[in-house]
Computed example of a mutant assay.
Amino acid sequence: MRVAECRIPRDRAATGFVTVSVGVASGCLGRDTTSEGLIAAADSALYAAKRGGRNKIWPPLAVPEVSAEFGNRRVALG
């Protein structure tokens, strides 16, 4: 079950339900890459995902099936 399919109520959300947007950045820390730079890149990607609409990952990724417990429900994240 995907997050959107759970229809978890959220009063302040435009849809009335919880949605998920994710920004992703990766790299190897070293001379040319800092943790601050990776955080800034992930933050930028998050806002790109939000501009793209609800329930987005940016940049688009092939995400393996991953799930998590939410209360008494298992939610698929990928």
Rank of each mutant, 00 (worst) to 15 (best):
I39M: 15
R10I: 00
S21D: 01
I8E: 00
A45F: 10
A48Q: 15
P60Q: 10
I8S: 07
E36F: 09
A41Q: 13
R7D: 01
F70C: 12
V3E: 01
R2S: 15
E36R: 12
T15K: 04
L46H: 05
A25R: 07
A76H: 03
V18N: 02
G52H: 07
L77Q: 08
K50G: 09
F17D: 03
G16K: 01
R2D: 06
E65A: 15
R7G: 03
R31P: 12
G52K: 00
T19S: 14
L29W: 03
G78I: 07
L61A: 08
G37I: 02
P59H: 10
V18A: 14
A48G: 08
E69I: 06
E5R: 02
M1P: 05
P60C: 06
V3W: 04
I8P: 05
N55K: 04
S26F: 09
L77V: 01
P59L: 12
R2C: 05
R2V: 02
N72D: 07
L77P: 11
M1D: 03
W58S: 13
R12A: 07
R31K: 11
G27W: 03
P64H: 13
A68C: 13
R54M: 14
D11N: 10
F17W: 12
V20T: 08
S67H: 11
V66K: 14
A48H: 06
R73G: 03
I57Y: 15
G37P: 14
A42M: 13
L29A: 04
G37H: 05
A68S: 13
V63L: 15
V18H: 09
G37W: 06
L29P: 00
G16C: 10
S44F: 15
T19V: 01
P59V: 10
T34W: 12
I39K: 08
A13P: 00
I57D: 06
F70W: 08
L61H: 14
S44R: 15
R51L: 04
C6H: 02
V20Y: 02
D11Y: 00
M1S: 09
A49H: 12
R51D: 08
R73C: 04
T34G: 14
A42T: 01
S67G: 07
K56T: 05
A40N: 05
V75R: 05
A4T: 08
C6L: 12
A49S: 10
V63K: 09
A45S: 15
A68E: 14
V75I: 12
D32N: 13
I57L: 15
P59R: 10
